[in-house]
Computed example of a mutant assay.
Amino acid sequence: MVEKHTGKRICQIIRLKPEYLEKYKECHRSIWEPVARNLTKYHIEDYSIHYAPMFNLLIANMKYTGDNWERDSELSRNDPGNFEWWEMTDEMQETLVEGSTGSRDEKGWWLDLEEVFRNDH
């Protein structure tokens, strides 16, 4: 019997520099085509980013549908289709990952959160 892969849900946070709120929203209203393609290429679906103004936090939720998150994360970090986008958006953000230098850092730029509860019904 073949096991059906149901995907992995991922939640991450990062601090948004408050002076960049409108610029951040604007660039995400017209996401660049290579960046949008790479979400699909690296098995990311149902991706959303929410903003919590009282904490200046961006909260990203996504479903990873591939079978090797570490490999796909590494390939994505090294995909030139993401480089200019991340250069632009990294300037607007402050990481919560100790020692991270940007989106291309293998430590991560957005902080991964542990899922402690889920109800799919």
Rank of each mutant, 00 (worst) to 15 (best):
E70F: 15
H50I: 03
Y64A: 03
Y47M: 04
H50D: 05
I44E: 02
S103P: 09
L57K: 01
H50N: 06
L75V: 12
K17P: 04
D105K: 15
E19V: 02
M62T: 05
I44P: 01
C27Q: 05
K25L: 13
N38V: 07
I49S: 01
W109G: 09
Y51F: 11
L21N: 02
I44T: 03
A52Q: 11
C27G: 00
L96G: 07
S73A: 15
L39M: 14
Q93F: 13
A60G: 02
T65Q: 10
H28T: 04
G81Q: 07
A60M: 06
L16F: 00
H28C: 02
G66V: 15
Y51R: 05
A36G: 06
H43M: 08
W109A: 04
Y51W: 05
G99N: 13
W69P: 00
K63P: 05
D67K: 11
K41I: 01
I59F: 06
C27L: 10
I44A: 06
I59G: 02
T40N: 10
W109P: 04
G81N: 10
K17W: 09
G81V: 14
G81P: 07
Y24E: 04
A52D: 09
N82S: 10
Y64S: 02
L96C: 11
Y47T: 01
E94S: 09
